[in-house]
Design a protein around this nucleic acid. Sequence first.
DNA 1: AATATTAGATAGTGAAACAATCCAATATCA
DNA 2: TGATATTGGATTGTTTCACTATCTAATATT
Lengths: 214, 214
Amino acid sequence: MRVSELVQRSGASLATIKYYLREGLLMPGEATSATQASYGEEHLRRLALIRALTDVVGLSVQKAAEVIQLIEGPGDDLFLTLGAAIGALPPYVESSNEQAQDYPLARTALERLGQVYDPDYPAVGQLDRALTAASAAGFPVDDDRLELYGAHVRAIAEYDIDHVPEGPAQGAIEYAVLGTALYEPVIAALRRLSHQDLAMRRFVPDSATDPAGS
Amino acid sequence: MRVSELVQRSGASLATIKYYLREGLLMPGEATSATQASYGEEHLRRLALIRALTDVVGLSVQKAAEVIQLIEGPGDDLFLTLGAAIGALPPYVESSNEQAQDYPLARTALERLGQVYDPDYPAVGQLDRALTAASAAGFPVDDDRLELYGAHVRAIAEYDIDHVPEGPAQGAIEYAVLGTALYEPVIAALRRLSHQDLAMRRFVPDSATDPAGS
DNA sequence: AATATTAGATAGTGAAACAATCCAATATCA
DNA sequence: TGATATTGGATTGTTTCACTATCTAATATT
């Protein structure tokens, strides 16, 4: 298909597509002449991925480009590649490429959960920041909460790991990175909706049979 | 304390503090003269909250202002206030203030989970967007995954609801809004770290006693 | 009295994410 | 075959955001 059709089917404007082409998020179409190129279904899927990463996950275009580069041509070290991809996900913590950070809150939390972790893994810094921010704002995560959250999150993570597709490392990386990124908003939304469900059942008597409260 | 001390203790620059004052995120200090005002601990806490909402939760300054307004002076309808606050949280979905949306994916998902929900609640749109984006990018949420996620997320939400502080509605709103917002990054980071923990235990034999793999 | 600080107002800055325009080369259609 | 439309490639413009800087006049501090 030509660009005009890609514009129609993807919903993105021509200017936006050209921009993504320039920034390397979208691969160029197969050139058929000096002024024509043909695009395929993979371009449509890519556009959907870009919108998912930017609009839903909340990545900047540059971070989305990083993630896409990583799942396109993963390095030989699976853990390094995965770590780099996780590091690009929000909330972004600038990696201290010099001295290793201490991350005291994250460390004690992970020890309490009995979890194995690599201190250089970006998510450690992300956890520390999240715990620090919650405390500073007056909502510290106490041990009870941490343990309950940890147990249920671990069950979710186990399901994720159990369903890594077999086959080439490429597919596993893609599943790991995009599954981490794309399912997070799902989990967040489900939690918000569970809050509402529980609150309605508890505080609004007939809500179970009359959701809208009309 | 004077502004200079607030600058020191908060880590924010004077220009930034003035900006937050202008935008209504930070309440003005008590004026002691035409060119002096005194600030207290509540200003420090507020600054920490602003940074938590912007840096960690990922809100824009304007959305953070909305959230702060809502928890400062909650309306008389608890559910409306809560819905408005949730609506300001990312991923931001513009509310269709005209015709009610359909949200087919979210609807079937919530029906399968047997959850009560208000279709006007912003999280419904957020869930739909997240499910749609995941599908379009090639990672649909199948029923098994949905049910497992749903069950564990519900357990987390139950803990949240069980620990709503007693007392005035003001405190409950604040807990609900900030607990929703501030604990989400904690949950996300814990999931990422559980992935790593499980992957290491599964694929790297001695990792349980040698986390860094040194 | 000299110097420093501050509130309040206004203007400026740099990055980000496109959007618009231009040109020359090709397609497409009448 | 000629007129019109589309496209690739490059460049420039626009808008928004989150600050940052500057200025003035009044007050604090030394």
